[in-house]
Write a protein that binds this DNA or RNA. Structure first.
Lengths: 104, 104
DNA sequence: CCGTAATATTCCTTGACAAGAATATTCCCA
DNA sequence: TGGGAATATTCTTGTCAAGGAATATTACGG
């Protein structure tokens, strides 16, 4: 797992954009209106999200429709699963580990 | 979903720490050794992770054993599921949306 | 209690990045 | 083809966070 996805989602307004796009694709102006943000900031955030591979653009006339890109979210899900697989193991390991430490 | 978890994981060295702790809990020095980081930086990153709720501390003698905290990861997983549920819907919606735009 | 191992904290400098304002670009349509 | 709508880019400024170095704190063992 790389940090690009996390960095992209670490910014509150970007996270709001992503959650808005979860429902359906939106144009830049739609996003700005719904989230009460200024258009240039929305464009800039969309560039960030685009560079991180989280969204794709679809030009329609002068508008640009932004939509979510599934892959990074799938990757994130896979990464999380790698934790949950070792989760119960890890939890029980804590006791074992602490005991071992206390004994020296 | 809040951005605290994402911010915490957006830093490369912190992500490495988390992935190290996925296997089993580690002391500060163990982390520093494994990841070839200086101890103060490891401590600082662990404070960040702790404030974000991603890790817990267990003192054993002078050592402090850090372990992952499941909840934030579970939350993240829940959040991701909210995407995947609307994923197929969203994908097919894109075409519909684009067509609608083109038609005005 | 003292020395030392283990960890935490402070101070400083530097780089990244977000918002605002202004401007540039793109592209349709009359 | 020129005007306006939609979006992107640039520049500046302020804030925040990371790393390095040094130092402080904590807590065990002798």
């Amino acid at each position: 797992m790389n940090t690009r996805t996390f960095s992209a989602l670490a910014e509150p307004n970007r996270l709001r954009i992503v959650e808005l796009l979860r429902d359906r694709p939106h144009s830049v102006n739609e996003i700005a209106t719904h989230l009460e943000l200024r258009q240039p900031q929305v464009s800039k955030h969309l560039q960030s999200l685009s560079k991180a591979g989280l969204v794709t653009v679809h030009p329609v006339a002068q508008q640009r429709i932004y939509a979510l890109q599934p892959e990074p979210f799938q990757q994130l899900d896979d990464w999380l699963n790698s934790f949950e697989r070792s989760w119960t193991k890890r939890l029980s390991k804590l006791d074992v580990y602490l005991e071992r430490m206390k004994e020296g």
